[in-house]
């Protein structure tokens, strides 16, 4: 077997194995170390600032004093708009790609190709596109809505590709078994395939969420710079990432609060990732039982 050949135990192979193992471990350690370093840096500079007041108060003195209350609210609204639009669209497209088209189908190939191109487009291009389409052409102006819709365009490729992978990973026996029981394709999809594809979907949502919450360039020209508490989705609202960027590069003495805000952003990312993986485990467990 391949395994046997690769992991054979002659002295030369033993040395190669140890070398490969060392390189692999080193790579993994470096990756983790970079993350821990960033986290430690953020904690060291920002943790002292974090308080309930910081999380709820409005920014003052161009963000150097006060808190990030309105910015957290704006960010949440932008993400809500983004996911509300991207999830149904993404799931629909993924179902089409995975269940209704074969790998050779011309239309499926076209959709996949466009998604791959979209995934590689720099976010500033999405920002300028979003500004031209949503803000100016559709007249939405600088608003949370424009920002959320722009982000939706940006995370769709990630969402669709992960959901499609999730669906494709479901064994064909499920489909055949369902068909043998006389279930319609819709029922098979809803009751068998989608629950089984949940892990893939959750990966997609987590990746998409991460890309969306970290986004600066796509938002600066769409949801904008205003740090007032938003009254509706038609108001301009500053996202966390833009606040960090502005404090970091534009405001003399804005660094401390930039660190604190970045720490909040990373904490949100960690929390959502953990919550999503817990949710995934539970849904998978329930699916396995039923």
């Amino acid at each position: 077997m391949v395994d046997h050949e690769m992991w054979g135990s002659t002295p030369a192979r033993g040395r190669t194995d140890r070398l490969v193992a060392a390189v692999v471990w080193l790579a993994a350690t470096v990756v983790t170390a970079v993350f821990l370093w960033i986290l430690a840096d953020l904690l060291r500079h920002g943790a002292g600032q974090i308080s309930w007041t910081f999380l709820t108060a409005a920014p003052a003195s161009a963000g150097r004093a006060g808190g990030i209350g309105p910015i957290l609210v704006s960010t949440a609204w932008i993400l809500a708009v983004c996911l509300a639009v991207a999830l149904p669209l993404g799931l629909g497209t993924a179902v089409l790609l995975a269940e209704l088209t074969s790998a050779e189908d011309a239309f499926g190939r076209l959709v996949r190709r466009s998604l791959d191109v979209l995934a590689g487009v720099p976010s500033i291009v999405f920002g300028l596109f979003g500004n031209a389409l949503f803000c100016v052409y559709l007249g939405l102006g600088f608003s949370i809505l424009s920002g959320g819709l722009t982000l939706a365009c940006m995370v769709l490729p990630i969402l669709i590709r992960s959901a499609e992978e999730g669906l494709r990973a479901v064994p064909d026996e499920y489909r055949l078994g369902g068909a043998a029981l006389g279930l319609s394709r819709g029922k098979i999809l809803l009751h068998l395939l989608l629950p089984a594809a949940v892990p893939g979907l959750i990966v997609g949502v987590v990746l998409g969420f991460g890309r969306a919450i970290a986004e600066t360039a796509a938002l600066i020209f769409t949801s904008g710079y205003v740090d007032r508490m938003p009254g509706s989705v038609h108001d301009s609202g500053r996202a966390l990432s833009i606040h960090i960027y502005d404090l970091g590069v534009n405001i003399p003495g804005g660094e401390t609060n930039a660190y604190a805000t970045a720490l909040v952003l990373v904490a949100i990312l960690l929390l959502t990732n953990t919550a999503a993986s817990l949710l995934g485990d539970r849904l998978r467990g329930r699916h396995a039982e039923s």
């Binding site: 799931l91 629909g92 497209t93 209704l100 809505l145």
Partner: peptide, 29 residues
């Protein structure tokens, strides 16, 4: 059958279209 899934896909497209129309309709001055 296939129609169910297709309607699911078109439903999501309709969501976006509706959202755009509504928001374009009630846009502020």
């Amino acid at each position: 059958m296939t129609r169910t899934i297709l309607s699911l896909a078109s439903l999501s497209l309709a969501t976006l279209a509706a959202l755009l129309l509504v928001t374009a309709g009630c846009r502020p001055a």
